[in-house]
Simulated scan of single mutants.
Amino acid sequence: MSTVIGASAEDVYEFISDPDNLPKWAAGLASSEVVRRGDDLLAESPMGTVTVRFVPRNTLGVVDHDVILPNGDTVHNPLRVLPHPDGAEVVFTLRQLSMPDDEFDRDTRMVEEDLARLRALF
Rank of each mutant, 00 (worst) to 15 (best):
L29C: 04
R57G: 07
F104R: 03
D102Q: 14
A116L: 13
R117H: 07
L79C: 05
S17Y: 09
E112F: 05
T59V: 09
E33M: 10
R106V: 09
S45Y: 07
P70V: 05
E10R: 13
D66N: 09
A43M: 08
V4M: 08
V81K: 01
N58C: 02
E113A: 14
L41S: 00
L60V: 10
D64N: 15
N71D: 15
D73T: 11
E103I: 12
D64W: 11
D107T: 09
T59Y: 09
P46L: 06
N21L: 04
P46M: 07
R95A: 14
G61Q: 07
L115N: 01
A120P: 04
L115P: 00
F104E: 07
V63L: 11
V50Y: 06
A43Q: 04
D40C: 03
T108K: 14
G72T: 02
V67P: 02
D40I: 05
V111W: 15
V52Q: 01
E113S: 12
N77V: 02
Q96N: 05
A30I: 00
G38Y: 09
L41E: 01
L42M: 11
D107C: 11
G28R: 08
P100K: 11
P19L: 07
R37G: 05
L41R: 02
L121H: 07
D20R: 15
G87Y: 06
N21K: 10
L118R: 06
R95T: 13
L69M: 15
V35H: 11
R106I: 09
D107A: 15
A30T: 00
R106T: 13
R109G: 10
T49N: 08
V75F: 10
P100L: 12
L118C: 02
T74F: 07
V91Y: 08
T59K: 13
L29T: 08
H76G: 08
I5G: 00
L42S: 00
V4Y: 07
E103F: 13
S32W: 07
H84G: 01
R117T: 12
M99V: 12
P85T: 03
K24N: 12
V12C: 03
M47Q: 12
M99R: 15
A116H: 11
E112H: 10
V81P: 00
G72W: 09
A7E: 10
D18S: 13
R117I: 01
P56E: 11
R106K: 15
D86F: 10
E103S: 14
V81D: 01
T3Y: 04
P78M: 05
D40W: 11
G48H: 03
L22A: 01
T49R: 13
R57C: 02
